[in-house]
Design a protein around this nucleic acid. Sequence first.
RNA 1: GCCGGUAUAGCUCAGCUGGUAGAGCGGUUCAUUCGUAAUGAAUAGGUCGCAGGUUCGAAUCCUGUUAUCGGCUCCA
Length: 636
Amino acid sequence: MIKITLKDGSQREYPEGTPVAEITESISKGLAKNAVAGKLNDRVVDLSYSVKESGPLDILTFEDAEGKNAFRHTSSHILAQAVQRLFPGTKLGIGPAISEGFYYDFDSLHIFTPEDLVKIEQEMEKIIKEDLPLMRTSKDREAALEFFRKRGEPYKVELIQDLPADVEISLYQQGEFVDLCAGPHVPSTGRIKSVKLMSLAGAYWRGSEKNKMLQRVYGTSFPKKADLDAYLFRLEEAKRRDHRKLGQELKLFTIMDEGPGFPFFYPKGMVIRNELENYWRQLHRQWGYQEIKTPVILNRQLWERSGHWLNYRDNMYTTVIDEEDFAIKPMNCPGAMLVYNSEMHSYRDLPLRVGELGLVHRHELSGALHGLMRVRCFTQDDAHIFMTQEQITDEIKGVIDLIDSLYGLFGFPYHVELSTKPAKAMGTDEQWELTTKALERALIEKKMDYKINPGDGAFYGPKIDFHLEDSLGRTWQCGTIQLDIQMPEKFDLTYVGEDGQKHRPIMIHRVAFGSIERFIGILTEHYAGAFPTWLAPVQVKVLPITERQAAYARQLADELFKDGIRVEVDERSEKIGYKIREAQMEKIPYMLVVGDKETDNGTVALRKRGEGDKGTVSFADVKNAILAAISRKTND
RNA sequence: GCCGGUAUAGCUCAGCUGGUAGAGCGGUUCAUUCGUAAUGAAUAGGUCGCAGGUUCGAAUCCUGUUAUCGGCUCCA
């Protein structure tokens, strides 16, 4: 007999070799219906797995991450089976489950079209109806290689060859279809109730551009049709929030053919930018920063000295001036170095915090461009902090606090990653060790959860990256804190210590917004275009019901304008419903409707975004409420 | 950069198998003066991304090119 401990702590005994499915059945019929896999002694297993050892057992359903994985993974096998039925000779790449579904990579002479997806989906539904059981078998290495060679699956052969020697090679079979797979899987294809193929894409074999490009089919699946519908609805909602669409509709920015990756900002987008920058300056003043501005174009020698010419050349735009090479800055640091070096510094000046809203240009691959999120020119809210070794931890902690307060203002969830030494890097391992440890210590002292991102540091130093989560669940790197002892050496930075000797400062590079452009993109999606009043391009719209109230409307607007409020009057001879509809679509936070009644007694009929008609109120009260919302930067 | 899709008026899109361009919104003008998400009428606006080619004839077919969208990170 074996002893099984269930999630609730209760223990049950079963004869050795009882399948997980039977154990599940004995616990609850309902659970058995929803079970997709088991987790025995922390190992995920099939429901058909015969339990031979005692230990804790979790029954996984679609609600569990690992259960979802098995469910989607089986879905990908069904996809591959359908494709091989419809397009015989198609070679299989890999077909894993991913966060929102699954994919399978195929090598086929036939180029798949969106119409094919419909046919494949129908074939998949057939396979689901056939309710084929999935059977696991294992083979030794030679037999497995032979098996896939015979079936004409070169990619599977390559995968087996790369498997570690001691690992069990398992196959899963459903009907005529067999795939190399570690599992686990749901017991039969009939369990996949609702499946949908989403898109087609090219993908390099094993993710390397040196390899052949395969055709990838993306899909998703759910145990219930309603769940699929809910998922599709969420995708639609995400599309409605897409900053590229909203940016166009709300006239915030545009990207034209004439400047791929180089965004234009319209007046309304500039309002948001300027508000963000104003707040940024206010915040940095509080945190003891100074501000500078360095040139966009600087000569080649500088970039050679900083190491960019050697390490970052592929991403840099260059130009020639009077027969001399120049580069358009991809980073602000070398300029800041020159500023630091332009005068002598005492230890009394340190830490010296120098900020710069610097416009940088980087050559990104054309296929990587994406609205404001991935561009070829953007404004970094940069700063360089020059300090002594003793000041490192406090300064890093200060920057973490600054960034946290900035993100908190918008209510953004974020997580932190620590990126370590990349392949292409300057400096010794000891230097990297020292700086990486310093960053880590600050994180530990701040009691922050973080994940290590190996090899993703800047070429001059390790970094702490802040990743925001947007409305699509994608994460975007925004803030970053980089610790650097390379640049101060390259530029021979010094300060005079208490001892009257010259010493080498250590430097922090850091950004909080990251890129103002990207941050605006993220904000747009976050608020679905309904920016809080302090950021809204137009904060108030005064809507006279007829021409008779035009003078009163203008008078109100003037008063608001004098107090710095961004206000417009809609004096067109349209019906009030039409004016309201338009203001609503522009996502204006406050509408002041004025008719004869309001004109006569000096009031307004307030309509607030998201709240609708608030009735008649005194103008002074509304004005004060608006001013308060702006100055407190309320998330309204 | 690579794979696939897309490119028609300011915006969103229609235009079947090739016969020389259409709607709605928006703009302008006029009428209307209206109480909480679209008043009516008239009118202007496009060398169909660009360059070649096939054809009597190309928005439509072919080639190239540019931009854009999705993907190329999730590893049996």
